[in-house]
Design a binder for these strands. Structure first.
Lengths: 214, 214
DNA sequence: CGCGACGTTGATTTGCCTCAACGATTGTGG
DNA sequence: CCACAATCGTTGAGGCAAATCAACGTCGCG
């Protein structure tokens, strides 16, 4: 039965190709043939099942992941045992703990799969080799990193300047497609509120938009 | 009188050189002679007086600043009129609104000087030219951007997982040198609390460490 | 079927905010 | 160099957003 699953996973991987990743790079900054071959050589397909860890706190983050299908989350568990989600990563998004990845120090973060998820992954050593062989990737990842920084900055600003209700509203608008795929517990852990309070917020909202039912 | 001040400022600028910036780059990734000349040609010294704006909300952020002497802050003013400080930038630190800088859209942020401050600045067009002429700067700014991202991520995590008191403690440990240069109003606006509450926190702490005085 | 995660609701608590007042410090124009 | 205004730090009283704790029904899954 184990081998049956393994076979099935390999089959799924074969059906997918690296095209989405190549397209992604190409759209950002056009690649030539050698650069595409480099990507194909250094990135490796991998399938993670729901609930499976990609990174567990205390370990070094050795890989950088690009999601082809499925959904991942990266989160911290604090002293009180609460979960704080830093980011989700669905199709065509990147995820890794950049701090641990570069410093090679143990990470305080976890990454796991919210759905069965297929990724292309690259190790730190391979990524460094890519930078050396094709400097264009320095530019590509500079742009990616800058975009991520801007996004994170917006989120921090939202966090410090808005109420939980405003943040929830903004989350609905920013990730309309993601919302249906996530449990409310996950959404609450991302917004930085308790599931109970999110439930009350939703209740209030539905009463406002449809006040008939007392 | 105006010309007297202007002269004084120019004198101050002449006394400083671009060496600290060159050293900064060189320490990150060694530069050759042409690259150093490129930096010297494209970055320009400028002096801002205390309270002077480098960027005002509604305007496009056209410059990227590296602080040689002094201290800057970048902040948002929200609907209720509260100030939220995203970052300080003292000696050897960078500051700009990257989102506005790259998109060329009006910024929602302000940058101003907390002390008389000398910077080296580069315009977006010049920076793009630098990237094209010397791809090494793609790598340099990739690394810088990644480091900034990691730092911001830590701050967001702190923000969602710690109390105001813990954040203040951590701020004292992270920026021990900055604390003396900032008013408590500035510190509070950075921590995301009111000045009144910060005052109470400090009061509590001093009582704990020296409980003699009732 | 039975167990464990999830979502909801109620009662209570609390961390931090708001508003207001006051002295101390800073800075500024006359 | 002084007078006055403005800003800053502190303290008190009261309020509110969101957390906590607990109970309960529902659903998906082994």
């Amino acid at each position: 039965m184990n081998s049956y699953i393994a076979l099935s996973m390999k089959d799924k991987i074969r059906q997918d190709s690296i095209e989405p990743l190549l397209d992604y790079f190409d759209r950002l900054i056009p690649l030539n043939k050698e650069e595409k071959e480099l990507v194909a050589a250094k990135f490796h397909a991998r399938l993670f099942r729901k609930r499976q860890y990609l990174l567990q706190e205390g370990n070094v983050c050795t890989q950088c992941y690009f999601v082809i299908r499925g959904c991942l989350r990266m989160y911290l568990i604090d002293d009180k045992g609460s979960t704080h989600i830093l980011q989700f990563a669905a199709e065509s998004h990147w995820i890794n703990d950049l701090g641990s990845f570069h410093s090679q120090h143990p990470s305080a973060l976890n990454i796991d799969a919210l759905e069965d998820t297929m990724v292309f992954q690259i190790s730190r050593d391979d990524l460094v080799a890519v930078y050396i062989k094709a400097p264009k990737f320095d530019r590509i990842f500079r742009v990616l990193s800058e975009n991520n920084f801007v996004g994170l900055q917006k989120r921090l600003l939202q966090y410090v300047s808005s109420s939980a209700e405003e943040r929830y509203q903004s989350f609905l608008e920013t990730y309309p497609d993601l919302v249906n795929r996530l449990s409310q517990t996950q959404v609450a852990a991302f917004l930085g509120i308790t599931p109970e309070f999110l439930s009350r917020l939703r209740n209030r909202r539905s009463k406002l938009s449809n006040p008939k039912k007392s």
